[in-house]
């Protein structure tokens, strides 16, 4: 239980080869077997890019520019493509952000799930049977008929169920769910979150929940990693993070959460916007928007142990001005 399934060390992603622009600036992240971790950050903070880097699915011009991704003892960042391929879908699987585009529109949904099994050597008969089983398990009605449907005949929620069935077909050790519900209606969101959480417990796989909404994952994860501008700025157990955030950005994120009546405190919005990868910020990336910024922040803050977790900020909470 305590041995890490995934150990990411100093992982950086850059765009372009000649004049590379760094997008993710040396991420550290550890997951133990069966652990659930939330990765939280505003749009553009590099969450998807990091997750795709873990799967080695970055498309041109993005590429891993440094760092290690140790998965069950192997460094994925250094693995040859055929070996990486045999891990994808079998050991590490992903549920994507937009179910409207993540399925092949020309292929029957059942075939797309079956394919996930076939390419890893499951024979045709077994794959077909398992596909029906999976459809039933993820709550798609009438599997015998619906496996023959094409994606456009399905609603967004049903498509996401197909993607989930595909990801879980081989009971991977690590599941990456990259904002699996942002593209869906609110009611459907809850169903899908519930479904993945249930399956996660059932299969005991380590899971990374990516979201830009802390409220969504609070109940689902043990630990939260907060990203800002391509950096990890805080990493702490969820209770600790909510009770005593160690980074001003986390504090602002929590303050902007809707209160129990569902309203968002309008003043808690963080003014400004996150930096673009092309904009170089001297020192701490959050400095231009940080209410606690001071001179020392002109130097990049390291991610250091703080209380029960870690944070990258020069100014500890007891020194924060209100």
């Amino acid at each position: 239980m305590n041995s890490p399934v995934l150990e990411v060390h100093d992982l950086a992603v850059a765009a372009g080869r000649k004049h590379p622009v760094e997008i993710v600036h040396g991420i550290d992240l550890t997951l133990r077997a069966g652990e659930t971790v939330g990765v939280v950050g505003e749009s553009g903070s590099g969450k998807s890019v990091t997750m795709l880097a873990l799967m080695r699915l970055l498309g041109e011009p993005l590429h891993i520019s440094r760092g290690h991704v140790r998965f069950r003892g192997q460094d994925l960042a250094a693995l040859r493509e055929p070996e990486m391929r045999s891990l994808r879908g079998r050991e590490i699987a992903m549920v994507y952000q937009d179910p409207m585009t993540s399925l092949n529109p020309f292929m029957r949904v059942g075939d797309q799930v079956t394919e996930a099994l076939l390419v890893h050597g499951v024979d045709e008969g077994k794959a077909t049977a398992r596909c029906l089983e999976l459809f039933a398990r993820v709550g798609i009605p009438d599997p015998a008929r619906t496996v023959r449907a094409y994606p456009h005949e399905f609603s967004g929620g049903m498509r996401q169920r197909v993607v989930i069935a595909m990801a879980l077909a081989l009971r991977p050790a690590l599941l990456i769910a990259d904002e699996p519900t942002t593209a869906l209606d609110v009611t459907i969101q809850q169903q899908i979150l519930g479904l993945v959480a249930e399956l996660q417990q059932e299969m005991g796989m380590a899971t990374i929940w990516v979201t830009h909404d802390l409220g969504v994952v609070a109940r689902l994860v043990e630990r939260v990693v907060v990203m800002y501008g391509g950096h990890v700025v805080e990493d702490a157990p969820v209770a600790q993070l909510f009770a005593a955030p160690q980074h001003p950005y986390t504090e602002r994120l929590l303050a902007s959460l809707p209160n129990p009546t569902g309203e968002r405190a309008p003043l808690a919005q963080i003014p400004g916007r996150p930096p673009l990868p092309s904009e170089h910020v001297e020192g701490c990336a959050f400095r231009p928007r940080c209410p606690q910024a001071r001179d020392v922040c002109a130097m990049p803050p390291p991610l250091v142990d703080r209380a029960a977790g870690r944070a990258a900020c020069w100014v500890p909470p007891h020194e924060w001005s209100a």
Partner: peptide, 22 residues
């Protein structure tokens, strides 16, 4: 560059099958 091709790669679909089927 489309998402569904990335999904297929994410399943571990080998290059030839990826090129033809997707």
């Amino acid at each position: 560059t489309l998402d569904f091709v990335r999904t297929a790669r994410g399943k571990g679909v080998p290059p030839r099958r990826l090129q033809v089927r997707h």
